[in-house]
Design a protein around this nucleic acid. Structure first.
Lengths: 170, 170
DNA sequence: GGGTACATGTAATCAGTTACATGATTTA
DNA sequence: TAAATCATGTAACTGATTACATGTACCC
């Protein structure tokens, strides 16, 4: 009822459904993968359950196909649009903690060199991937998406820088 | 039984209990706040429940005070030490997503200027706080802790840089 | 026509959060 | 001694994950 029960996942669903006009859970999965998936992934089961929940709250309208697969298609309702717009209009002051398992291991005394090597093996390719995305699709990307990508690049650079220093320090 | 059911929170508890030799949930809370709390916070209720769980798994030994408050004191067991050591010895390749609500709003088309302002209001003080910590306590801090702090500073710098750019771009 | 990958969904579990509740100390 | 604040814990909920299960389409 009140928007208090909505989580980030809710807004992701709401936002993607709004953008698409209409979507099935599977399409949501595709959209997530194609857009924010690498910054904020959502397991597919949630993309089935969350829309259902939002439908119960009256924020989405559910339509079950009568033929073949009986897919569920969702569209946003007026109150869904309102809830989404309200969330969007109120700039969050929330703060995201790092919550990086590698950092945790470092803190607890893991061998820094081995740890740094392992971490670089994941962060370097990830950074390369993002940079390639930007160089290849950057110009066509919607502005907001490009910014998000830039942010990802910045943080990945930071991780690489950090673990390289840890490695160098021995 | 197998270590598969252990989460990061488990290792935090295990690690802190190991470091302290013995600890009550409240002391764990203090330790978290004093060390990794700003990178990886743990709500206090979890610091009561998780040790209980670990005790059932045989990784901690629980001792209930018979006097007054009947506090629960925990110590690590041999198998707890093993489990912790195993986790520590295996460098994680896990990758932490950004999962920043601000980025999410940006992606979905929130007003970038207002958003950047709000975000800078939280990130700038946070950065200052970390830098002050480092300058003030840096030399006394255990090496690993200092590194974690450096990482936090790096990422906060990155956030500030990013949102400043968003702000400047209009 | 057999396999493999894509597509679609449900069930069960649980970690983590929120809310509630109260005892013990300090401090004004 | 009243009021905060610190300390300690339990209960209830639920979002998110994991695991299971099956249908459909394409391809060799």
């Amino acid at each position: 009822m009140s928007t208090s029960r909505l989580t980030p996942a809710s807004y992701i669903v709401l936002g993607l459904v709004a953008q698409a006009g209409e979507a099935t859970p599977y399409q949501l999965k595709q959209q997530v993968a194609a857009s924010i998936g690498s910054f904020w992934s959502v397991p597919h089961a949630q993309l089935y359950k969350e829309p259902e929940r939002l439908a119960k709250l009256g924020l989405l309208r559910e339509e079950v196909e009568t033929t073949g697969r009986r897919r569920k298609r969702y569209r946003i309702t007026a109150s869904g649009e309102t809830a989404f717009a309200e969330w969007l209009a109120e700039p969050t002051r929330e703060f995201t903690e790092l919550r990086d398992p590698g950092l945790l291991q470092l803190f607890f005394g893991a061998d820094p060199v081995r740890l740094a090597e392992a971490q670089l093996e994941v962060h370097r390719p990830r950074l390369a991937e993002y940079e390639e995305s930007r160089d290849q699709f950057g110009p066509q990307l919607p502005h907001a998406m490009r910014l998000v990508l830039e942010s990802g690049i910045g943080h990945e650079r930071e991780w690489v820088r950090f673990w390289e220093r840890v490695l160098a320090d021995g």
